[in-house]
Design a protein around this nucleic acid. Structure first.
Lengths: 153, 153
DNA sequence: ATTAATGCAAAGCATTTGCAATAGA
DNA sequence: TCTATTGCAAATGCTTTGCATTAAT
């Protein structure tokens, strides 16, 4: 897997979404595009609730959830960092994939990717006869800045 | 990290738990020990609900949840595979750590561990100045058996 | 005796769903 | 027109919590 983390533009995402909807015989509604735009406007990660807050009364909560599922199926978003509390999403990179480090002190998310790790994961799957669809890796810990603060105390 | 996956015996787990409770000024109740025993009786992974079902009326649902938190704090259990739906737990290996593959077809969990991956993760953390506490890696996909069934169709 | 832990039932919260109204195609 | 989609409110399912009772130390 390639570790370049370039996600596509809103415009291209919208184009891909329209295409997906058309192919599936689904309808391209204003609400669906609103959700897509909000998802792209949100820098990095976001939850369904955050997106709903951004959209105000434009789109109902139920529709936000339904559209997020739709965008995942369209291959435009992926679910990441499923915590105990809520599901987070982020735009799929056109090329590339990355994993996450979560700072337990400040909540910051650091993205990283290592092709060697990806290759080893693929190797493990082959070894077990497992066909991978998706994976997620999250490392919880303390980031450089928060370590600095701890030391200062 | 060592990939040996030997978890400690119930007896030793109970000893560690008692010690932890004592140190923290907490009380060693029959219910807490019941939960610990059930956790060790459950092969591999289990959810709070499954444990509560195993225990029947011996321990209330609320106490199962409270005790699971307690066991995690004691370092005896860890949370794994936090899916959208519920939290799973498993006994901490005394030495050793492993990751998971989840078959989306049959729900089976395959454990694996690769020291090279662990080392690379540690290297990524050092590179980012990140102090790791814990990590989880899950690969979703289709297991060998389910792939066989798919092919047979 | 103290006071932490329990059980119950109710509350919380993210997410899903039934259904009548709305609006793409 | 036809039927997928929406919004609302209620439901779901896991988890947490308030509080009176019980029990460990």
């Amino acid at each position: 897997m390639n570790c370049n983390n370039l996600s596509i533009s809103v415009a291209e995402a919208a184009r891909v979404f329209r295409e997906y909807l058309h192919e599936e015989g689904l309808r391209c509604t204003e609400q669906r595009l609103d959700v897509l735009r909000a998802a792209w406007a949100a820098a990095g990660h976001f939850s369904a609730g955050e997106l709903h807050a951004m959209l105000g009364a434009e789109v109902s909560r139920a529709t936000v959830y339904r559209t997020l599922d739709c965008l995942v199926r369209a291959g435009l978003l992926r679910e990441v960092l499923q915590g105990r509390e809520r599901t987070y999403y982020e735009p799929c990179a056109r090329r590339g994939h990355h994993d996450h480090m979560l700072c337990v002190a400040c909540g910051k998310v650091i993205e990283f990717c290592d092709e060697r790790i990806e290759r080893l994961q693929d190797a493990m799957c082959r070894e077990k006869g497992f066909r991978p669809i998706d994976h997620r890796m999250g490392i919880r810990g303390v980031c450089r800045e928060c370590r600095g603060k701890e030391d200062a105390q």
